[in-house]
Amino acid sequence: MKWLELFLRASTPTDRFVLGISAAGILSSGWLITSEPGKRAVVFRDNRPVMTLALDQDRKQEVSGRLGPVIIQVEQGRVRLLEYQSPRMIGTRTGWIQGAGRATACVPCGVLVRVEGKQKGSAPSSAHEFDAVSE
């Protein structure tokens, strides 16, 4: 109750309106991005696709990041960044990602993993995109 009293004392009606609008915007954009399980994970290093991992094949794969090797694990249709050198380890702490359109990254390593497949309100990933990644 003390926190509620503090909140009511510290905030103006405009503050509460902005809080509500921004929360709704964040939740709806999160819902839009959440989607059906993806079919493959594309690994990018410095915006260059370096490999594509099928999510129906469990494996561990190493890629070379800016700070050293980065290990990517695929298991039961999910993918995660498992191990690398980074101060905050945000990518590893993000854990498993599964839905098409989701991404996890080690920013200091320059490595990004993106799950591809069918997203809400969009067509499946184009053949061109898939081909480009497969090259």
Binding site: L6, L19, G30, N47, A103, A105, P108, L112
Partner: peptide, 27 residues
């Protein structure tokens, strides 16, 4: 750094964390 727009897919999750920290820091 990353160079790929796929990182923007993580934006709602990061913004949700910022929403909480913004309110907390305001108080």
């Amino acid at each position: 750094i990353i160079g790929h727009a796929g990182i923007l897919a993580a934006l709602p999750w990061f913004l949700a964390g910022s929403w909480i920290s913004g309110v907390l820091n305001g108080l």
